[in-house]
Each structure stands twice: as structure tokens, then as C-alpha cells.
Design a binder for these strands. Structure first.
Lengths: 99, 99
DNA sequence: CTTATACTTCGATAGTCATCGAACGATCCG
DNA sequence: CGGATCGTTCGATGACTATCGAAGTATAAG
């Protein structure tokens, strides 16, 4: 008898687990992730962070989040659409919760 | 109708939330937290980390975990006992999960 | 009292990382 | 074609931090 395994729980490597922890430890990155979670498929250009940090820095954070496996980035036209990889994120949360 | 609020869910400040995220982003600290979670009230001297890092560094990590609100440290005799602050930890996990 | 154990504090160091500006690449529009 | 917009890459820089050894504090034991 199990609970909530409807998505066939992803298995995170130790490396990825730590990469995610690191990715989430930066306030900007977490803010970005929150926005993507709230509006899946949103335009990168719509992120609030464009108000306070440079495009170069935003791009850097995107790369980090992407390499941690937390978001997918799809270029469309001149812009980019952002998608939360919820299975990965959920796997991280569950693993944390289980310590 | 709610779920699992049996501990009267703790409310984390934005500051504490980020402090916890930062605390968890270091592999050593996470390893320490895992050991404490697995053996609440354990002796600091029993941590595996004594095999690989200096007492000074361990003490530093303890301070970080303590200031993030994740562990309590009580001196007893020459040693120190470590306790996981599960309500705080759970509040962090729940807040993460709710994005 | 002296020694040993357990942890803390301090200062220094080396490595990491968020941030930027500048230059570049791609795409859309007129 | 020629701008204009959006994002990426690169190199540099300043800030932060994990780590250490050495010195300090407290406690227990001989």
C-alpha cells in the first residue's frame, strides 16, 4: 500500500540531488523557479528578475537550473519558454522529506 | 478540511527559508543532518565527518545548521548532543513542495 | 594538580560563484 | 538588407565560504 506514486517516482543520483540543493540555495534562482512553477511555459523575458539583474546573469541562472534538471528551456522565435520539470522537483522534495 | 497539520505547522520567515536552503546546499552539512535525523540526540563526536574534516570545520557546520534553526545543540559533559528540529525542517519541506 | 578529551573561536587561505559589460548569434520586422 | 529584440558566451571582479592550524574554554579522569 503506497501513497502518491502516480508519476512513477524518479530516482535522483547523489550528484543530481546535490546539484538541486545548490541550485535552490540562491534566492534569485528560487524566485525564478517559483515563477516558472506558477506559470509553466512562461517566457523567459517575463521574469521579474529583468528588473534587477542583467540578461547575462539571468542566463547564467537558467543554465544552473537547467543543468540541475529543474527546468527545461525551449527556444521559440527570439525568446525562450520555461518549463518546470516537476517529477525531478518532486523527487527532490520527497527525498528531503524522507530523512 | 486539512491534511497533516498535527504539529501546528511552523511559519518560516523568508530569511529563515533561505538560510535553510543555504545550509542544505553543502554536502557535508546535509550528511550531518541526515545522521542527526537518523539518531536524534546523538553525540557530536560520533559524526562520520570526524574521519575527514577537522573539528574546527565541523564546529563551523554545526553553527550554520543551528543558526538556520535545523538543529539544537546541548552541551553535556565534554561533549554535545544534537537534536533535529523537525517542525522547522518539515515546514521547509512543505513550503518547498507547495510552489 | 595535571593530563586528556570535546568542542569553540580566530585569522588566514584557497576556491567558488553571483554579477557585470562587451561581444556574439539568432530571429523577427520594416 | 538593416535595425531591433532576446538570449548566450566570455573574461574579469568582488564577495562569500569551506577549510585548516593554533590557541582557548570547559569538563572529566588519573
Amino acid at each position: 500500500m503506497k501513497k502518491k506514486d502516480s508519476v512513477a517516482e524518479v530516482k535522483l543520483s547523489e550528484e543530481q540531488f546535490q546539484a538541486i540543493a545548490r541550485a535552490l540555495s540562491d534566492p534569485r534562482r528560487f524566485a525564478i523557479l517559483r515563477q516558472v512553477a506558477a506559470a509553466d511555459g512562461m517566457e523567459c523575458a517575463s521574469l521579474e528578475e529583468h528588473e534587477c539583474i542583467s540578461p547575462a546573469t539571468i542566463s547564467h541562472h537558467m543554465k544552473e537550473l537547467n543543468e540541475a534538471g529543474l527546468i527545461e528551456i525551449t527556444r521559440v522565435g527570439r525568446g525562450a519558454r520555461l518549463f518546470l520539470c516537476r517529477p525531478i522537483f518532486t523527487a527532490y522534495v520527497n527525498r528531503l522529506a524522507s530523512i
